[in-house]
């Protein structure tokens, strides 16, 4: 998709892929045949640039047709390269960072006040933790004890120009989040069992929203993309695509 559309952000998609697979495959109450049913769990992709990964998962579970993906980023397509609510199964459009968590907080607050049992999941990037709006939302959710809210930070350690550490260091991240009234857990964001265990058992502490700090690798699974800043932007050539697919296939053989 990304190659065909000559689009960016393939590295960001690969760091999120395992998290999305576990959420949609094993954690969320979500019926691909009825993606707007009222008691579904809500998923918000706040790092909207990882849209290709979400569209792929939605196709994998049968919410979209695989052939829909061929339209990604094309002229006139609904599949814009930042995630779009006009796509079946997508709750919310993002693309500007720092919007997903406040919106998810509103959903979680609504669920609480309406006595609904569904949960809200928000997948965020590490870079967007620079946004003040996220810290406003973290403070609000902690204060209002929204334990039906779950956030995951895809902590791949790379931002747009340099590492997180060199840009605006987030550490000590877990302690900061805990101090805002959240229950935080750190785990390997490519470990399906660890993700499933953590995300299936929220709230970990009654009255506290839950946040997973998922340590990930940008460009995961493709040796020449892993931990390379340029793959925030570059689009793989035909040769690079073949190489990447071969690596991914052999690692899952």
């Amino acid at each position: 998709m990304v190659h065909r559309a000559r689009a960016s952000h393939v590295g960001s998609c690969l760091s999120s892929a395992d998290i999305l697979a576990v959420l949609y495959g094993a954690v969320m109450r979500f019926d691909p045949a009825a993606p707007t049913t009222p008691d579904r769990d809500r998923f918000i992709l706040s790092k909207g640039h990882a849209a290709a990964a979400v569209y792929s998962v939605l196709a994998q579970i049968g919410c979209l047709a695989h052939t829909d993906l061929d339209e990604y980023g094309n002229d006139g397509s609904l599949l814009m390269t930042h995630v779009s609510h006009k796509i079946r199964g997508v709750e919310f459009s993002t693309g500007s960072l720092g919007h997903g968590l406040p919106f998810g907080v509103g959903k979680a607050l609504a669920a609480r006040r309406l006595h609904a049992v569904w949960r809200t999941f928000v997948l965020m990037s590490d870079g967007e933790m620079d946004e003040g709006s996220n810290w406003e939302a973290l403070m609000f959710a902690g204060h209002h004890r929204l334990d039906n809210l779950v956030a995951v930070i895809d902590y791949n350690k790379l931002q747009s120009l340099a590492s997180v550490k060199a840009t605006l260091d987030l550490e000590p991240l877990s302690a900061k989040l805990e101090s805002f009234g959240w229950s935080a857990r750190e785990l390997d964001g490519h470990d399906h069992a660890a993700l499933q265990e953590a995300l299936s058992t929220t709230p970990w502490a009654p009255g506290k929203p839950s946040i997973v700090i998922a340590h990930t690798v940008k460009g995961k699974g493709v040796s020449f993309m892993e931990n390379r800043v340029e793959w925030h932007y570059k689009s793989p050539s035909a040769t690079q695509l073949d190489e990447a697919l071969a690596e991914l296939r052999s690692s899952h053989a």
Partner: peptide, 22 residues
């Protein structure tokens, strides 16, 4: 809801509430 002195979250959460019927 008093969102506190935090207008970005205020408007984002209002949108989230509106998406759930408010």
């Amino acid at each position: 809801v008093n969102s506190g002195v935090a207008e970005q979250n205020m408007m984002g959460l209002a949108a989230g509430m509106a998406s759930e019927g408010y």
